[in-house]
Amino acid sequence: MKKLGKFYMLLVLLFLYVPIFVLIVFSFNETKSRSVFSGFTLDWYKRLFHNRIIISSLMNTIIIAVAASIISTVLGTFAAIGINSMRKVPKSVVMNITNMPIINPEIVTGVSLMLLFVFFAARMNLEFGFVTLLIAHITFDVPYVILNVMPKFNQMDPHIYEAAQDLGCSPFRAFRKVVLPEIMPGVVSGFLMSFTYSLDDFVVSYFTTGSTSQTLPITIYSMTRRKVSPEINALSTLIFIAVVIVLIVKNAIEKKAAKKSGMYKGDMA
């Protein structure tokens, strides 16, 4: 039985990691072929760093993901504070409204944003590009932040905020010293979630991108008429390695912190 369990585990792991493994292997392939491995080379990595188009769209992607997730974390956290202090009925109504964009197919969000921007572009001097991309990303990021922060409010004892004020804190100080630390894990995971979502978003970006900036997923998609270049394999490999390193470092830090405080704090994840 134990063996069977291990075998099953192996199958699942294979299922998850074989595609990435193949991608990594072919980033070292000498030719452009995606099916025949003909020899080892590091050329694609060298070319990747000289390819202005790929590098600049990577930069765009990162800038937009960072900006959108920071802005939406601030917006979402404030929204969650407001929603938390609502009465029951308006609260559930607002929560449903904020959940809509998550359930809604991305393509609907994308097309409707595009139509909205076109509407404004005709009237104001709005040009499709960085600004529209950023607004679109904030739009679909905010609900994820709210969704992550709200449970922390539900877990929190509402009276500790009042107690802090009773003990002489100003409302803002009470918020900073008492409420914020309590909801912080939710804020952090909301930030990370919205960051990853905007990092790999394609559909919404596809409809809202313009003539001045383009994100990496769109650059890769545009290669499909000719052929997706192995430089992309190389880039994906580097991103994969970066993610793995971040994960390892994060786990190591958490373990250290857990050892220090004597208990493992599970909800940081």
């Binding site: 040009e127 313009g210 003539s211």
Partner: peptide
């Protein structure tokens, strides 16, 4: 400012839709 498309129809849609100036 260099951006890419994958099909003629995509280009047409972007141009026809307005908003983006090429």
């Amino acid at each position: 400012n260099y951006t890419n498309y994958a099909t003629n129809e995509e280009l047409y849609a972007k141009l026809k839709g307005g908003g983006a100036a090429y």
